[in-house]
């Protein structure tokens, strides 16, 4: 059983993120971490491996070279191997260019199951799995609140606007998991030490046979024209500490005749 987990790096939640006004891309210079949503996909892969007692978990990432630290975190948490696709030519890739790159990287691994997190913590995108599935011509199930594996099939409880569906798909397939599917483990000290010894491969676009017109800005069909401030919600009030917080809230709501 080979499990591939697609991961990405996102800015730390506490970091002051911004979009570079020159390139109109996310400034990835600040503190960054493994996308928290992807930790749930990795955790699910590790649990499947532990339940079945065999298998290999490969973390696959497309990101600039400095993101290797986040991939190493995936190894520290428990992935057996890491594949890092890094190439300056990938900068500015949109959904389809990104999916093309990851499809090539994942395909090499010949996985039985490909897992993704529910969204990018930076882009709020929830689109990659379906694009990836189409390129790999594999079945896909998203919004998995639970996942069972038996007899070469996955059974997924999918949450939609109407409740829970039960969907079955044969392996190999792609499943995008919700962040409620499990509670991800933290890397142990032993895991952190051991991560340095695990295989950590770095590939470029040429290694994957990707042409310059398929990736990066040249391979992308969306663009950003301009940035603007969001519409204001009006003045907001910030109350710190527990002391008189309840009184202040009640006062605010009473003044506005809301209670």
């Amino acid at each position: 059983m080979r499990l591939a987990v697609c991961v990405k790096e996102v800015p730390e939640a506490s970091a002051r993120t911004r979009i570079d006004p020159g390139t109109l891309r996310l400034d990835r210079g600040g503190a960054a971490t493994l996308n928290p949503f992807d930790a749930h996909a990795l955790e699910e892969a590790l649990r499947i491996k532990e339940r079945t007692g065999e298998g290999e978990v490969v973390a696959v990432m497309m990101a600039p070279l400095p993101a290797a630290d986040s991939l190493r975190k995936a190894l520290a948490i428990g992935a057996d191997r890491a594949v890092h696709v890094a190439d300056d030519a990938l900068a500015g890739s949109d959904l389809v260019a990104t999916a093309r790159t990851l499809a090539k990287a994942v395909e090499r691994e010949e996985p039985d199951l490909i897992l993704l997190g529910q969204q990018g913590g930076d882009s709020d995108g929830a689109v990659l799995w379906s694009a990836l599935a189409d390129l790999l011509r594999l079945p896909v199930v998203s919004q998995a609140a639970s996942l069972e594996l038996a007899e070469g099939k996955v059974a997924v409880k999918r949450q939609t606007e109407y409740g829970y569906d039960l969907i079955e798909a044969p392996l190999p397939c792609i499943v995008a998991v919700s962040d409620a599917i499990n509670e991800p483990r933290y890397p142990s000290l032993k895991g952190i030490m051991g991560a340095k010894k695990k295989p950590h491969e770095t590939l470029n676009a040429a290694d994957l046979g990707l042409g310059a017109d398929e990736i990066g800005e040249a391979g992308s069909r969306t663009e950003v024209y301009a940035l603007a401030d969001p519409p204001s919600r009006g003045d907001s009030v910030r109350i710190e500490g527990d002391g008189a917080a309840a009184e202040k809230v009640v006062e605010y709501l009473t003044e506005r005749k809301l209670i």
Partner: peptide, 12 residues
């Protein structure tokens, strides 16, 4: 984008 802290005009 970025938790709705900025709005981007996007195109194709």
């Amino acid at each position: 984008a970025l938790q709705d802290s900025v709005y981007a005009d996007v195109g194709w």
